[in-house]
Nucleic acid binder design. Structure first.
Length: 511
RNA sequence: GCCAAUGUAGCUCAGUGGUAGAGCAGAGGACUCAUAAGCCUUUGGUCGGCAGUUCAAAUCUGCCCAUUGGCACCA
């Protein structure tokens, strides 16, 4: 079979509850995945949880439970978030799963046998109180701060992965593949990092310091530490070592935050793959951060607002719309309750929700709850269709280029044009006329509004899947799997039954 | 210090050489099918600063300023 379109998010660290950043990355990836499915690709969409490491072990100790219990609880929370957001992932990987441990150990063994991993001693300053090594940089006024307690110099043995020998190859690869990293300016950060000589990467921890990890296959006194555990998830889920692997790998997109591009995803991961003789991921989609994320003071009430509560209050699609409309992928963006409410009220409730509401209502009053037939084509109809043609032509390239904020701007511009069209035809005035010509105009106007709404919902599907199918059901449009043929202005709705009056985006209670 | 991104109307942003744009917010108006919604009109900007290239610069070049991020012997 032909290769799937394989897209991943970063796996979340089991060290705290989900926040806006986690939710955003899932939504962004989901939009790409859904768009590709509409374009006819078979998609594999992976997300998951990174469960090993010191912090997980410590927080379990603090609670007096086993680490896996902490992980189970958080896995539940993160998977619950995905479900609530309508994320269409078809796999969810947890790094404590057997399938993952097996791949990590296989990979480590292979590289060890190839001589890519070696054992060495390191001398450094260790803080038993913080259970971590400290560096000269952390000194304040020539002393380590009180929180570190007694700092002692220790010598420790560990395993290292050889990075430096691949440095020139990596620089060359990134230079030659301009499209590898989106947005492109991020590649400059990688190349700058690679101007300095690479040090080999420490990939183990002695079990005396860290138990909660995957054991090295060639030395039972150690577990592997972070990168070989976390990054490897991408090939585990792709079916490394099975026939399925070639159908999935290489990944088409790793969607990640800007903080984990350099060095892990753009340096360690490609070198790990190269050493294993595997192909590199084709692209990285690197997004920015939400500023003031997690919470924001509401100016009016002084209350702290958790963005994720907005999902419960206003629905997953409203949340998806907001983060997609506001974020220019790759840049940072501001989150505030005021901005959210502004988008919700004016774009969703007033422009879209109210349009659906008035169409259903008029259909019930004037055309017996059916979508009538469009029989005339006057200047207003031509004008609206002209707007549609422009919108349609722009949208696919915008989606393909990750310009989702602009895509939504265009779609809602078209929705606004439907409202303008309604004002021009004013079916509520035509309904008062006895003239045959006015009756035709009335029926045409409702048919045109319904068809235009159907078209806009097709384009909106990747971002607002739930609302899209809800509106399509209300206007009698059939469901669809592929974009093919769906974007052509047609008459398929004629005769369809309109749904009961519906409020898609209720206004919040006013205090 | 080095590198990068960003800096356009009160707010969020579009606009990469040819007389400053959109949405929201504000003001006024006509209408009434609709979620006190929608529609029309309108106030508002020396496009961060300085200099340069050009017949012409928000748009190209240089310098500067501000904000943010990357540049950790993370053992």
């Amino acid at each position: 079979m032909s290769k799937r379109f394989y897209i991943t998010t970063a796996i979340d660290y089991a060290n705290g509850s989900p926040h806006l950043g986690h939710a955003y990355e899932k939504v962004l990836t989901d939009i790409v995945a859904r768009f590709r499915r509409l374009q006819g690709d078979e998609v594999k969409f992976l997300t998951g949880l990174d469960e090993h490491g010191q912090k997980v072990q410590m927080s379990a100790q603090k609670c007096g439970v086993e680490p896996i219990e902490v992980c189970d609880r958080l896995a539940g929370e993160f998977q619950g978030l995905c479900a609530r957001l309508g994320i269409s992932n078809d796999d969810y990987i947890r790094t404590t799963e057997g399938r993952h441990k097996a791949v990590v150990q296989e990979v480590l063994q292979k590289l060890y046998e190839k001589g890519e991993i070696y054992k060495a001693e390191y001398a450094g300053f260790y803080s038993p109180r913080q259970e971590q090594f400290v560096t000269e940089k952390e000194k304040v006024d020539g002393e380590w701060p009180e929180i570190f307690g007694e700092v002692e110099e220790v010598v420790e043995t560990n395993y290292f992965f050889k990075l430096a020998q691949y440095q020139d190859w990596l620089v060359e690869t990134i230079r030659e593949n301009e499209a590898m990293i989106y947005p492109r300016f991020r590649a400059a950060d990688v190349l700058q990092f690679l101007k300095e000589p690479l040090n080999d990467l420490c990939i183990s921890r002695p079990k005396t310091r860290l138990e909660w990890g995957i054991e090295l296959p060639f030395d039972a006194d150690f577990v592997t530490y972070v990168w070989f555990d976390a990054l490897t998830n991408y090939i585990t889920a792709a079916g490394y070592g099975t026939d399925a692997f070639s159908e999935n790998w290489p990944a088409d997109y790793h969607v990640i935050g800007k903080d984990i591009l350099v060095p892990p995803h753009a340096v360690y991961w490609p070198i790990m793959l190269k050493a294993l003789g595997l192909e590199l991921p084709r692209h990285y989609l690197v997004h920015g951060w939400w500023l003031s994320s997690g919470s924001k003071m509401s100016k009016s009430t002084g209350e702290v607002v958790d963005p994720l509560t907005l999902i419960e209050q206003f629905g997953a699609d409203a949340f998806r719309y907001f983060v997609t409309r506001e974020m220019n992928v790759g840049q940072d963006s501001e989150f505030s309750l005021e901005l959210f409410m502004s988008r919700y009220n004016s774009d969703l409730a007033n422009d879209l929700g109210n349009l659906v509401s008035r169409l259903l209502n008029m259909g019930g009053r004037y055309t017996e709850g059916k979508v009538p037939k469009a029989t005339i084509e006057g200047e207003p109809e031509q004008a609206l269709k002209a707007v549609w043609e422009v919108t349609k032509a722009e949208l696919v390239p915008l989606y393909e280029g990750f310009q989702f904020h602009r895509a939504l701007e265009r779609i809602f511009g078209f929705i606004s044009a439907i409202n303008k069209y309604a004002e021009t035809r004013a079916p509520w005035k035509l309904a008062k006329s006895e003239a045959e010509e006015d009756r035709e105009k009335l029926e045409t106007s409702l048919a045109v509004m319904a068809e235009a709404l159907r078209l806009s919902m097709v384009l909106l599907t990747p971002v607002m899947p739930e609302i899209s199918s809800k509106v399509r059901a209300l206007i009698g449009a059939e469901s669809f799997e592929s974009l093919k043929g769906q974007l052509d202005w047609g008459t398929s709705l004629a005769g369809a039954s309109l749904g009961e009056k519906a409020i898609l985006f209720p206004r919040p209670e006013r205090n």
